[in-house]
Computed example of a mutant assay.
Amino acid sequence: MFTSAPADIDVDYSLLARQITSILEGERNQTANAAQFSAFIYQSLADLNWAGFYWTVPAKKGDAEELLVGPFQGKVACARISFGKGVCGTAAAERRTIVVPDVHAFAGHIACDSASNAEIVIPVIKDGRVLGVFDIDSPSLNRFRPEDQLGLESLVAIFVAATDFT
């Protein structure tokens, strides 16, 4: 049975912005910052079962790009996702945040964790290049609201500004 998001999921994104700025201050390493950022989001937002990064890498076969799992919090995840496939690959290919209220209704959804019911994916873009995506899953339907999208996009922007990418 699917659950709906709890009513008490209000988040003070301005407070989270100040906190993540402080956490990332003085460190520029991509892996360290991504690990800290994933853990921070996973612990700070209610009703999540996965939060983490996928990085853009050359595909194993051919010249296309794909996403390779990076630092995350949650259950074991899919290792590679092709650009244009699933929610993560679509967000990367279209260079835009995608909010999915019910992943079971998203054509082509990749079910890495059968407990996930809602998802938001924010592309990580710097200097016009898609470096990857930040993916968050929830066991509840309709978990992510417009204010979550705006807040999470601002937090990802803080991460990008604080990080040197290799």
Score class of each variant (00 low, 15 high):
68 L>T: 03
138 S>K: 02
50 W>G: 09
116 S>C: 06
46 A>W: 03
124 V>F: 08
109 H>S: 02
42 Y>D: 09
96 R>Y: 01
10 D>Y: 10
81 I>Q: 00
70 G>L: 08
21 T>K: 10
78 C>Y: 03
80 R>N: 05
80 R>A: 04
17 A>D: 11
108 G>H: 06
163 T>C: 05
166 T>Q: 11
32 A>K: 11
28 R>A: 05
78 C>D: 11
97 T>D: 04
68 L>C: 11
46 A>I: 08
18 R>L: 12
79 A>K: 15
20 I>C: 14
134 F>M: 12
3 T>F: 10
29 N>R: 13
117 N>A: 15
90 T>E: 09
146 P>M: 05
31 T>L: 13
132 G>A: 10
160 V>M: 09
139 P>Y: 11
105 A>M: 14
80 R>F: 12
1 M>W: 04
141 L>P: 11
37 F>Y: 06
121 V>M: 02
73 Q>M: 14
107 A>N: 15
64 A>T: 04
28 R>Q: 13
151 G>M: 02
54 Y>Q: 01
62 G>W: 02
28 R>V: 12
125 I>C: 03
98 I>L: 13
103 V>W: 10
136 I>K: 05
35 A>F: 10
139 P>Q: 10
88 C>T: 01
90 T>Y: 00
138 S>M: 11
79 A>V: 05
96 R>S: 05
11 V>W: 01
116 S>G: 06
43 Q>W: 01
166 T>F: 15
148 D>R: 03
118 A>Y: 03
87 V>S: 02
67 L>P: 00
53 F>C: 14
9 I>L: 08
43 Q>N: 13
17 A>M: 04
165 F>G: 04
49 N>T: 09
122 I>N: 05
30 Q>T: 03
120 I>D: 06
123 P>M: 06
18 R>F: 07
48 L>A: 12
26 G>Q: 14
81 I>T: 08
159 F>G: 15
97 T>N: 12
131 L>S: 01
13 Y>S: 01
78 C>W: 01
164 D>N: 07
29 N>M: 07
114 S>W: 13
40 F>W: 04
162 A>E: 13
26 G>I: 03
147 E>Q: 09
144 F>E: 13
71 P>N: 14
143 R>V: 05
112 C>Y: 06
77 A>C: 07
87 V>L: 07
125 I>P: 00
148 D>T: 01
26 G>Y: 05
145 R>T: 12
52 G>E: 08
155 L>Y: 01
